[in-house]
Design a protein around this nucleic acid. Structure first.
Lengths: 223, 223
DNA sequence: TGATATTGACACTGCGGCGTATCAGATGCA
DNA sequence: TGCATCTGATACGCCGCAGTGTCAATATCA
């Protein structure tokens, strides 16, 4: 487990590196990685993952390939990292606003939808990455997409949990329904972004709200 | 408009060609095109458009590149042709079954959903092409996807038209709602395909039906 | 100030796919 | 049967990108 001996402490110190422009090795590396992530959002979110080459991302980051491979094995790894961050940001904002509007379920749904459409309206790159570019890349990326969807489905179920207790639906049924609700919102968002964002946000929120509440009411009321 | 003169009728006859293996030029070309389309469905629907090269499609068709370029300019053109056919097939089946179940709206919705999930269950390649591979390819392909979505949204609105007359919703509102309904079904289908098709078709149909009818009822009843 | 680490620009190799061209063999026509 | 067409296999040139290597310029430390 330890073929390498500590005979060369000076060499070992190389790992730490020296400070440069006021930042130590780790800080510089982290900053470069952050710039690459931002460049990934910009590149994937505008020209698309398919047209994004390592060189293009590096140009957007103002760095060279050398530092790309310092932080990522390949562009797919950057995509996964970027996607993870985008999905987390969307999730965080939606949940935060929804919880702030508790306990009124209608207000919560409205807050969640408003948070979503506002966020992607302010930065359509996020929507393109989260809802479009992430699909059909590779099995690994598909898995990540599945995982994120599962997380959102779970969140939907948690938020509506208090209102679904009476429903005698199986866990599977609830998951399918929540998947449907998620899909409804996603497609509305997709078409809004890929079109010219013709409709005002209020119309999106209002109709998505109608749809979601129709489902929640129906399920809560049984039938 | 006519720099070329008809000075060479024999050459012009070349266009007609000679029969070969019992088929004339046009028939052979059509048959090759059909084989390429089928190979496109197989290739795009299994390994995906991203991994599909012209050579691979040709190998699947049992033809060489020469005949690929006889019928298509590039692989994107084949994708568009394949997508058009797949979308049309789905649309045709769904509408046919839905209309056969008229005039009971509940039965129509159930028939439409059953037709969809049956079709993609029998041939998951269609679902992969229609719902996954088609996204994030190019602006042209995006437009085709938008057009197909619009067609499905219109179909949903037509099918539910009799029940929405009373609703005082604008055209825009109805389109957004129909988009949501479509998205719900699509995401349920996507997750079903990308997962291991764990749930039985009946569960998908049943829950999608619940969701769709919840929306239709809510809209029809006003509120 | 000199030695060393760090940076950025760029050259280089290798791979894989696209689109075209070539050619020998098979098929149909006169 | 001989000639023209069609077919299929394969070769070829080209280009773009991935990933690595080189080197001079710059910043830090002793």
């Amino acid at each position: 487990m330890s073929p390498g001996q500590q005979t060369t402490p000076p060499t070992a110190r190389t790992t730490t590196g020296r400070t440069y422009r006021g930042a130590d090795r780790r800080q510089r590396q982290d900053e470069r990685r952050a710039r690459l992530m931002e460049a990934g959002i910009e590149t994937f979110g505008t020209i698309g993952y398919r047209n994004a080459t390592v060189d293009r991302v590096c140009a957007a980051a103002g760095l060279t390939k050398r530092y790309f491979y310092e932080s990522f094995d390949d562009s797919e790894e950057l995509l996964l990292a970027v996607y993870g961050r985008v999905a987390e940001e969307l999730h965080t904002r939606i949940v935060a606003d929804a919880e702030a509007a508790a306990p009124d379920i209608e207000a919560q749904v409205r807050a969640a939808l408003t948070a979503l459409f506002r966020t992607i309206g302010d930065d359509p790159r996020l929507a393109r990455i989260a809802f479009v570019e992430i699909l059909a890349v590779s099995g690994t990326v598909d898995s990540a997409w599945q995982a994120v969807n599962t997380a959102f489905v779970d969140t939907i179920l948690q938020l509506t949990q208090p209102y679904l207790d009476a429903a005698d639906l199986s866990e599977t049924d609830l998951e399918i329904l929540a998947t449907g609700v998620l899909g409804a919102v996603v497609l509305i968002a997709q078409r809004w972004i890929l079109g010219e964002r013709a409709q005002p946000i209020e119309a999106l929120v209002s109709n998505a709200h109608t749809l979601v509440m129709a489902v929640v009411s129906r399920v809560a009321a049984l039938d």
